[in-house]
Every structure is written in C-alpha cells, then in structure tokens.
Deep mutational scan, measured.
Amino acid sequence: SPEVQIAILTEQINNLNEHLRVHKKDHHSRRGLLKMVGKRRRLLAYLRNKDVARYREIVEKLG
C-alpha cells in the first residue's frame, strides 16, 4: 500500500540524513536521497488525489 511505502521511504530518508551529517562529501548517497524524496513526494501526491483521509492520517503519523 502507498502508506507502507511512504513509511519505509521516510525511515530510509531519516537514516540517510544522519549518514550525510557525518559524511558531508558523500554525493553518491545524496543523489540517492534526492531520488527517495522525489519518490515519496509522488506517492504522497497519489494518495492525496485518491483518498484525502488516508493522506491526512499518514502525514499526521509521520510528521
């Protein structure tokens, strides 16, 4: 489901952010981070168009 995919991506994004705080010059990982953020944004847009209630619920849960 989109909610699960968004939750997994959010966790991976948070982990990668911590990694990049330590390894500032790791541009390869930064590119992966940007791809993940874009994918999460697309999934959220899809969910917002399909079911606003589910969209609001996941945004509330994940912050």
Rank of each mutant, 00 (worst) to 15 (best):
Q5R: 05
D51F: 03
R40M: 09
K25N: 15
V22Q: 11
E57C: 06
R30T: 05
K50I: 15
L62C: 08
E3Q: 03
D26V: 03
K61W: 15
N17V: 15
E57P: 00
L20Y: 04
E3H: 03
R21I: 05
N15E: 12
R31N: 07
S1N: 10
P2T: 13
V4C: 14
A45M: 11
L9A: 00
L44V: 01
A7Q: 09
N17T: 13
H19E: 04
N14Y: 07
G32C: 15
L47V: 06
Q5G: 03
L44K: 00
L44P: 00
E18I: 07
R42I: 10
Y46S: 08
V22S: 11
L20K: 02
N15F: 14
H19F: 08
R48D: 01
H27G: 06
N15V: 13
H19N: 03
R21K: 13
T10K: 01
Y55A: 02
R56Q: 13
A45F: 06
I6R: 00
L34F: 10
V22N: 12
L43V: 02
A45Q: 12
V37C: 11
L47T: 00
L33F: 04
Y55S: 01
E11T: 08
L9F: 03
K50Y: 14
R21F: 04
K61N: 08
K39D: 11
H19I: 07
R48I: 05
I13D: 00
R41E: 08
L47E: 00
K35H: 08
R56E: 11
G32S: 14
R54F: 04
K35P: 01
R41I: 09
T10N: 05
L9H: 01
R30M: 11
A53K: 14
H28E: 13
R48Y: 14
L47M: 04
K39Y: 10
R56S: 06
Y55R: 00
D26Y: 04
R21M: 07
N17I: 15
S29L: 13
L47A: 00
M36V: 06
Y55K: 00
R21Y: 04
D26A: 03
I6K: 00
D51H: 04
N14W: 08
I6Y: 02
G63L: 15
A45Y: 05
E18V: 07
V59T: 06
L34E: 08
R41D: 12
Y46M: 12
K25C: 14
E3T: 04
I58Q: 03
H28C: 13
E60F: 07
K39T: 10
H28A: 14
R40C: 06
L34Q: 09
K61V: 10
A45E: 13
R41C: 15
K35W: 13
L34S: 07
L47D: 00
H19M: 05
V52R: 10
A45L: 10
K24V: 11
M36P: 00
A7M: 15
E60H: 12
K50V: 15
D51P: 00
I6F: 03
R31K: 12
V37L: 14
G38A: 14
V22I: 12
L33S: 01
L16S: 01
H28Y: 07
I58E: 03
R30E: 04
G32D: 15
N49F: 11
D26R: 04
Q12S: 06
D51Y: 02
V59S: 03
R21W: 04
Q12T: 05
L9G: 00
L43C: 04
H23P: 02
H28G: 09
L33V: 05
K24R: 10
K24Y: 09
D51M: 03
G32W: 15
L62Y: 06
E57L: 06
V52W: 13
K39H: 08
N17A: 14
K35F: 09
E60W: 06
S29D: 04
R31M: 12
E18F: 06
R48M: 09
V22G: 08
R56I: 13
L20S: 01
K35Y: 11
L16H: 02
H23M: 04
R41H: 09
N14T: 06
N17F: 15
K39F: 08
H27L: 10
H28W: 08
Y46P: 00
N49W: 13
G38V: 14
K35L: 12
V37H: 07
I8P: 01
G32A: 15
G63Q: 12
N49T: 12
E3L: 06
R40P: 01
D51R: 01
E18C: 09
S1W: 15
G63S: 12
L47I: 09
V4W: 10
K39R: 12
E11L: 11
L44G: 00
R21H: 06
R42F: 07
I13K: 02
I58F: 05
T10M: 06
L9I: 04
L33R: 03
L34K: 09
R56F: 10
L20W: 03
Y46W: 12
R42M: 08
I6G: 00
V4D: 14
K24E: 09
I13F: 02
S29T: 08
K39A: 12
V52T: 08
E11I: 11
L47N: 00
R56P: 03
H23E: 04
G32V: 15
E3P: 03
K39W: 08
N15W: 13
R41M: 09
L43Q: 01
E3C: 06
D26K: 07
L43K: 01
L34H: 09
V4R: 10
E18N: 10
L16T: 03
M36C: 05
G63F: 15
N17C: 15
G32P: 04
K25A: 10
I58P: 00
R30I: 12
H28N: 11
R42H: 07
L43F: 03
R40A: 04
L20G: 02
G63K: 13
T10P: 00
T10C: 05
E57H: 05
I8V: 07
A7S: 06
H23I: 03
I58W: 06
E11Y: 08
E60I: 11
R48G: 02
K39V: 10
L16P: 01
G38C: 14
P2Q: 05
A53N: 12
V37W: 07
R30C: 13
L9C: 03
V52N: 11
N15R: 15
K61C: 08
E11K: 07
A53T: 10
I58C: 06
E60A: 13
S29N: 05
P2H: 07
L47K: 00
Q12Y: 11
L43H: 01
G32E: 15
L33Q: 02
D51T: 01
R54T: 07
A45N: 12
N15Y: 13
K35D: 09
L20V: 04
K61L: 11
Q12K: 14
V4P: 02
H27C: 11
E11M: 10
R21Q: 09
E57Q: 08
R41V: 06
S1Y: 15
S29C: 09
R56Y: 13
V59L: 12
